[in-house]
């Protein structure tokens, strides 16, 4: 079933359109930076963006930092929100279940497909950003070896590659959290739009609450609390505290919402 879901994902024109649109923003940012040479000052604007003018190879990270807070979660909400509700609305859910595809197996396959979408998007974004970064940016670079960490020290290339993969993994875990929430809502809502919007409102609401001093007591449990903690991977030494908390929090969100999705879907009457 997982293979079937993946093949559906890859064959859908919408998948590729979405990825292209997501990819367009960081590319545009890269081109603008290259043309104007006007970077944000260090500490302002999206993470890493101030560094890319001196080192184009950092642009993939900057691109991810641009995409992660908003675009990627929206795309994941839409993809995972469609998982069950979309099949139900198209009428194909009943035919999938009588093949038979077990309900738990279907949920797992849908979650895997959503993650495959994230991986695909992240890879495309990172690859395009690398090309853009190397080709257009970093021409002011006077550096000989390695890149600059956020803390100002130098990072060797293997170190940088390793940390980049860790960062990608962390970002994907955050998106898995979003996908789990969307999947649960998809088993509850009768329209995929409802599930997607519900998920988006959860992380928009969470981001809003994070800016509020009054929400101090619950902020460490909000789903978006540690989303951007992957920046800490590029400090020297790595600042693990927020990353660890973020991993635990996301794993908890995935577990709770996936369990809820299964509990709801396992005994649901499929009447569409």
């Amino acid at each position: 079933m997982i293979r079937v879901e993946l093949s559906k994902l890859l064959r859908s024109r919408r998948t590729w359109t979405t990825i292209a649109l997501i990819d367009a923003l960081p590319t545009l940012v890269g081109v603008l930076l290259a043309v104007t040479d006007l970077g944000p000052r260090p500490g302002e604007g999206p993470a890493f963006l101030s560094a890319v003018l001196t080192d184009g190879t950092l642009f993939p990270l900057a691109a991810l930092a641009i995409v992660l807070p908003l675009f990627l979660p929206i795309a994941v909400s839409v993809t995972a929100g469609e998982a069950i509700a979309g099949e139900a609305a198209a009428g194909t859910l009943r035919y999938v279940l009588v093949r038979p595809v077990g309900r738990l197996r279907l949920l797992v396959a849908k979650l895997v497909a959503a993650m495959a979408f994230v991986v695909l998007t992240v890879l495309v974004v990172a690859a395009t950003a690398y090309v853009v970064g190397v080709a257009l940016l970093g021409d002011q670079s006077v550096q000989v070896v390695g890149s600059t960490s956020v803390s100002g020290t130098s990072l060797s290339t293997p170190e940088l590659v390793g940390r980049t993969f860790l960062a990608l993994g962390y970002a994907m875990l955050c998106m898995l959290g979003v996908a789990a929430i969307a999947l649960f809502l998809s088993t509850v809502a009768s329209s995929s739009l409802g599930a997607a919007l519900g998920t988006m409102s959860i992380f928009v609401g969470s981001s809003l609450l994070l800016t509020l001093d009054a929400s101090e007591a619950i902020r460490d449990y909000l789903p978006t609390r540690y989303w951007l903690a992957f920046v800490d991977l590029f400090r020297d030494p790595i600042l693990w505290r927020d990353l660890q908390a973020g991993v635990i929090l996301q794993v908890a969100y995935v577990a709770v919402f996936f369990a809820a999705a299964w509990a709801n879907f396992a005994t649901k009457d499929v009447t569409d």
Binding site: K8, R13, G91, R94
Partner: peptide, 13 residues
């Protein structure tokens, strides 16, 4: 068991 329930459905694209 082969079945058709309340009309056919397929992936439209």
């Amino acid at each position: 068991v082969g079945s058709m329930i309340e009309g056919p459905a397929a992936y439209a694209h």
